[in-house]
Design a protein around this nucleic acid. Structure first.
Lengths: 116, 116
DNA sequence: GGCACTGATGCGCAGATGCGCATGTATCGC
DNA sequence: GCGATACATGCGCATCTGCGCATCAGTGCC
């Protein structure tokens, strides 16, 4: 199997979590400290730290110490750009769904069931 | 939390597996039956079937019966296009790495993070 | 109907994930 | 050095995944 699939799967797995996705989104706007992220997202600091450690290991974000804070930022904007494209596609799909919401689901998002 | 993050996380999670990624890649080239996929990828048919079921539930692929075969194809090429963009970005990173060093493959990701 | 073929599903197990919680570690001001 | 601040890490637990295996279900052909 092409190694690129394994690498990409690792990166995707890292991004495949709502909170990490939101983190990436926030960090795309501006670099931020762990505490700021925890506050903005209203979740526990150790949890934020763990997610960031994963993203760091996958090369999605970079960390840099700044005084007693540690500022995280996106390591590769291209990756998150691709993410943004996907999000657009999904939003089109959501809009389309909302448009004809009374339809035998079929192809479109059984995950729409996921839309809670 | 924005619901779009949950939806996208579900799709990403579906794609975050080397085999499913390869499947998506193969299906992007041409629609294919379960058996063909199993043969091309040299993995067991039930395994292929399970992966396809997941991708189908996430709306990544569509299924259509054709005689006694069932042909799968990509449901939303845009999503896989975004995937392709990400892959390009990662390949650039790989190339950059190969340029610099001959490290053990396991260190690739973190090394890549370090290199940027 | 009977049979071969194609694909789906159920089961069990080993390994991975996400989280809360408590605790460890590095930096700054005094 | 000491305390406070800002993150990281280890642990335990409930849950989820991926896989092999055996088996079930739908279709076409005789």
């Amino acid at each position: 199997m092409e190694p690129i699939y394994q690498l990409q799967a690792d990166v995707l797995k890292t991004l495949a979590h709502p909170r990490r996705l939101e983190m990436a989104h926030l960090l795309a706007d501006e670099p931020m400290s762990v505490g700021s992220l925890a506050e903005r997202m209203a979740i526990a600091q150790p949890n934020v730290s763990q997610h960031l450690a994963l993203m760091r290991a996958a090369g999605v974000v970079d960390a840099e110490r700044d005084g007693r804070e540690i500022r995280y930022r996106l390591a590769d904007p291209d990756i998150i750009r691709a993410c943004g494209l996907m999000r657009s596609a999904l939003q089109r799909r959501l809009a389309c769904l909302a448009d004809i919401s009374s339809r035998p689901a079929g192809a479109l998002i059984t995950a729409a069931a996921g839309r809670r």
